[in-house]
Every structure is written in structure tokens, then in C-alpha cells.
């Protein structure tokens, strides 16, 4: 086993474990902290795919910005242990788990088809693709219009968030 393989399997196990803890924890603050751990594991997995830019953005944007927002809102609403909601195991939830398991089987079937299992990683090429220079060139030439639309989306989101969180909502 090479170092890369050991790193991938350890990080994958940690990612699945922390994802499970996000869903199973009763206290939202602990859930949020496990989600941050999950994001760091994913950043490491992106590094095994030679996607350096995405790995850094993952930590900056997800673990840095989005999760701070989540933790801030949980603290603001004071959703500690007192607010831990009783989760009854009704038949609907059992059905949901069964259906989700069926979906997993379908996806596993799809992903174990020969096209997915025989692909080989061209290391030199993937290192070149993951560089910020290559992604930036594509972003400002081929994907310029979606990139500009993203700025409109972010502006709309800021305006919407301020409007929704205002004290008086007429």
C-alpha cells in the first residue's frame, strides 16, 4: 500500500464516520462540528485526486465561511440540549430509511459498471488540471457567462437574506 492509498482509505473512513455522526447526533452544535471534520476529510480526498484548488476552496468556503454561519445561527437561536428534539421512530421514518437504502443499492450498481472500474488516473494530466491557473483560464473564457451569473446570484442571496432576517416582516 502506498502512502496515497493509506491516506485515501483513512480519510474515507473518517468522512463516512463523521457524516453518520452529523445525522445521528442530537445536539446541533456537535453535528456542525462533525460536519466541519467531514469537510476537512473531503479536502484531503481532493488532494489525492490532485485537485489542489478545490481542496483549498473547500476549507476556505465550506469549513471557513458556511460553517461559521451555521454555528452562528445555532448559537443565536440557542439550540442547545434543551432544544434537542425528540425523534420518534414512526413508520414514515422507517420507510424513508428503507427507500434510501434502495437508492444506495441502485447507485452502487451504477458505479460498479465496467466504465467506472477500469478508468486509470493520468497523474501528470490531473496535476495540471487541478492547478488554479488552468481552472482560472477556463473560468474566465469558456465559463465567463455562468461566472457572471454567479455574482448576480450571490447579490440576490445577500438581499434576500437581509430581507428575510429583518425584524419586521410585513
Amino acid at each position: 500500500m502506498t502512502f496515497e492509498q493509506i491516506m485515501f482509505y483513512v480519510l474515507a473512513a473518517a468522512a463516512v464516520g463523521s457524516a453518520l455522526m452529523v445525522v445521528l447526533q442530537r445536539n446541533p452544535i456537535i453535528s456542525a462540528l462533525y460536519l466541519i471534520l467531514n469537510f476537512f476529510c473531503l479536502a484531503g480526498i481532493y488532494l489525492t485526486l490532485h485537485a489542489q484548488f478545490i481542496a483549498i476552496i473547500q476549507i476556505l468556503v465550506y469549513a471557513g465561511a458556511i460553517m461559521v454561519l451555521f454555528v452562528f445561527v445555532i448559537m443565536l437561536l440557542n439550540l442547545g440540549d434543551a432544544q434537542a428534539l425528540k425523534a420518534k421512530l414512526t413508520w414514515q421514518r422507517m420507510l424513508a430509511v428503507v427507500l434510501v437504502f434502495g437508492l444506495l443499492m441502485e447507485i452502487v450498481y451504477l458505479f460498479t459498471m465496467p466504465e467506472a472500474t477500469t478508468a486509470v488516473l493520468d497523474v501528470d494530466r490531473s496535476i495540471r488540471i487541478g492547478e488554479v491557473e488552468h481552472i482560472g483560464t477556463q473560468l474566465f473564457t469558456k465559463f465567463l457567462f455562468p461566472f457572471e451569473i454567479t455574482s448576480v446570484l450571490l447579490t440576490a442571496a445577500i438581499v434576500g437574506a437581509i430581507f428575510l432576517a429583518k425584524k419586521k416582516l410585513d
Partner: peptide, 12 residues
């Protein structure tokens, strides 16, 4: 990012 901002505003 925008989804988190708007969604958390809705929750508040």
C-alpha cells in the same frame, strides 16, 4: 453559500 445564507435567514 447563497443557499446557506437564505436558508438560515428563513430559519431565523
Amino acid at each position: 453559500a447563497s443557499e446557506a445564507a437564505v436558508g438560515l435567514a428563513i430559519i431565523i
